[in-house]
Simulated assay, not measured.
Amino acid sequence: MSAKNVSEIETLTERASTTPVEPEAAASAPEAAEAPASRGRGRYQAMVLFAVCCLALGGVFVRWSEAGPVATGAYRSLFAAPLLLGISLAMSRKSSPKRNGNENDAGADGVKTHRIGRRDQLLIALGGIFLAADLCLWNISFLYTSLAEANLLANLVPFIIAPLCFLLFGDRVPWRLVFPALLALAGLYVLVILGTGLDPDHLRGDLLALTTAVFYALFLVVAKGLRERYEATRIMAGLSLVCAVVCFAVAAVMGESVFPTSAKGWLVLVALAVTSQVLGQTLMAHAVKFLPLQLAAVFVLLQPVAAAVYGLFLFDQWLSLVQIAGIGVLLVSIYWAKHLLESRK
């Protein structure tokens, strides 16, 4: 989740477009509340930064894993599924006294808690397949391109999901999105064409990471519809389980090593699940609800920067000045596009 994760967070949690006021601040005078609110915002900013650092570790653990990259993604989703299911059951039990025994009443988050129908089960399977394709391609891309580029290119989701929502749901796409889109194309040219020197392996990794954004956008479109009818952790548990099964099947077909060969290998998989899936996703989903949209977007775009630092110190992945320039252009275009799309909410 991939900072590309911020799009998932925004879609699945439907976070508010303004910063909520802390309960203590609401109970006191505005002057007395200003300082606590400022301290609270600082706490959430630190939380987002920590979450970004955790999310950026995904590529590190994929490179360290004794299992293949696709199998590693399978374990990440598999370990997340029971956690998400447990959270969903806990939330369901907490809200059950308020439903007065009516299973079709809304749950704690305002969505219905009725049984998942056959059509939505098929949608969960489809969404899980899209998520698996995203994870497979992204994890493989780490083996060919730098951690920074893989994280950055997967963040181009806003340019893909906007036209998808227009085609499928008739959502209006702001015409001004053309300008950041053109800027993104320029950044892609600088980073992928000029920056790689058309090296076949490096180019392959960049294209895999770019295709990741397409499948992630498709996943978000499916998840968006499901999220309107069901509680988030409930559907994410099902999506994660389907994703894990598909990834294991793909890993077997590709002849990857599916099982780690040492205790260290298992610890790497557990660390991946804890940092990227549990700490990263959970803290990000919680903290961004208490920050202004533009500020949250800036923090989330620091994930490629964190990945670049990891790549430099852990794998000696130096970026050329041309690559840094392309990354800078892409970061500006993504932030610009997110600002245009979020201002319409």
Rank of each mutant, 00 (worst) to 15 (best):
M1Q: 11
T11A: 07
L12I: 14
E14Y: 05
R15C: 06
R15A: 11
P20D: 10
P20G: 13
E24A: 15
A27I: 07
A29H: 15
P30Y: 09
E31L: 08
A32N: 08
A33E: 10
Q45I: 08
A46E: 10
V48R: 08
C54Q: 01
L57G: 03
F61L: 07
E66I: 13
G68T: 05
G68N: 03
P69W: 01
S77Q: 10
F79D: 01
L85N: 06
S88I: 04
L89K: 09
K94S: 15
G107F: 06
G110C: 09
K112W: 10
D120R: 03
F130N: 00
I140H: 06
L143I: 02
A148L: 04
N155R: 00
L156G: 08
V157C: 08
L164D: 08
W175I: 10
L177R: 11
L182E: 03
A186M: 13
L188Y: 11
V190Y: 09
I193G: 02
T196S: 15
V221H: 03
I235C: 04
M236F: 00
L241A: 11
C247S: 15
A252K: 03
M254T: 04
S257K: 13
G265C: 12
V268M: 11
A271R: 04
G280S: 06
Q281M: 14
Q281L: 14
M284C: 14
V288P: 12
K289S: 06
L295G: 09
V298N: 13
L301F: 11
L302R: 09
Q303S: 13
V305C: 08
G311S: 13
L312Y: 14
L314A: 11
D316E: 11
Q317F: 02
L319C: 03
S320E: 05
V322K: 07
A325M: 15
V329D: 08
V332L: 15
I334H: 00
A337W: 01
L341M: 02
